[in-house]
Design a protein around this nucleic acid. Structure first.
Lengths: 151, 151
DNA sequence: GGCGGTTTTGATACCAAGTATCACTTTAGG
DNA sequence: CCTAAAGTGATACTTGGTATCAAAACCGCC
């Protein structure tokens, strides 16, 4: 687990939210599959937590910048724990696992966009699709709907 | 109107599809708002055409490469006529109008991604959000749900 | 530990975007 | 003009997510 649960708690509490038992359960589940999960996957994996609460918690964590929302190649939404700072996502087209990249030579993307457009971009979205190393060799089509990867 | 309707017809017929009366109606509507429209907007503007047909036609045109599907900043989907060749989209955060860019200095994006990732990307998605020149001065918030821009 | 105000929760209903089904209509071509 | 194939429309369904609202949990205070 790459993300400190305590820091998530701090994020919540520093912004006037409570770290409730229910949120703890949701956040644990999220942290356990931090490299790409679906809201519905979290919901179905947590029979004690209501659907609305799962979606509300995810929305809250998005607003706090704890999570990123990304799109698989087919457009279906996934979430992942956010790296700090500006970054983008590489998404496996087979298993949906998400990794970040930021320290690559795309650092000057934003200014180049600005000069290409003649106006300041207020935001952008860049997602790269590839086959992850684990999926590269495997012949099976294992794209999941639930949001878990690789068992 | 920037897109030849005849070429759309050719695209369809060269791929074993018919250019029916109904498709003609849908394609006319699309061509008339080619810089960003929603499926539902097309549907509600065409009382003679069924919902399923509108979505099916859009899907077909996507498959043929006649249309692109893009996401507004809030994630809601929009379509636009596709420029030929590899390109990306600039989307106004207020009115949702979509323009293309390709001949900018991002041409080397793909190879740079490849070397940054250590593996070949099989695709990517880049969308840039900005305020279009028409929206820049206007104080009104006019973000539409229907998909039309600027009257 | 109990009280009370605020926040959170869960059930439910709803919305948006899109797909599946299937009987019916168009269409192309002989 | 007839027929098979393609396309259409109504409807129901699915996925992803939000609104509502009463009930429950939470937190500070006494």
């Amino acid at each position: 687990m790459l993300v400190s649960l305590d820091s998530v708690r701090e994020q919540l509490e520093n912004n006037g939210h409570r770290y409730t038992q229910t949120r703890g359960v949701v956040i644990d589940a999220i942290a356990a599959s931090s490299h790409g999960f679906s809201a519905d996957g979290v919901y179905t994996s947590l029979p004690t937590v209501g659907r609305a609460t799962v979606y509300r918690t995810i929305k809250l964590l998005l607003q706090l910048g704890v999570l990123c929302k990304v799109a698989l190649q087919n457009g279906s939404p996934r979430y992942s724990m956010a790296a700090s700072g500006h970054h983008h996502h590489v998404i496996c087209i087979r298993c949906g696992s998400i990794s970040d990249f930021s320290q690559c030579n795309l650092d000057d993307l934003a200014p180049r966009l600005a000069s290409a457009l003649g106006r300041e971009p207020v935001g952008h979205r860049l997602e790269v699709y590839t086959l992850c190393s684990e999926c590269e060799g495997s012949p099976e089509v294992t794209l999941v709907r639930g949001g878990q990867q690789h068992a």
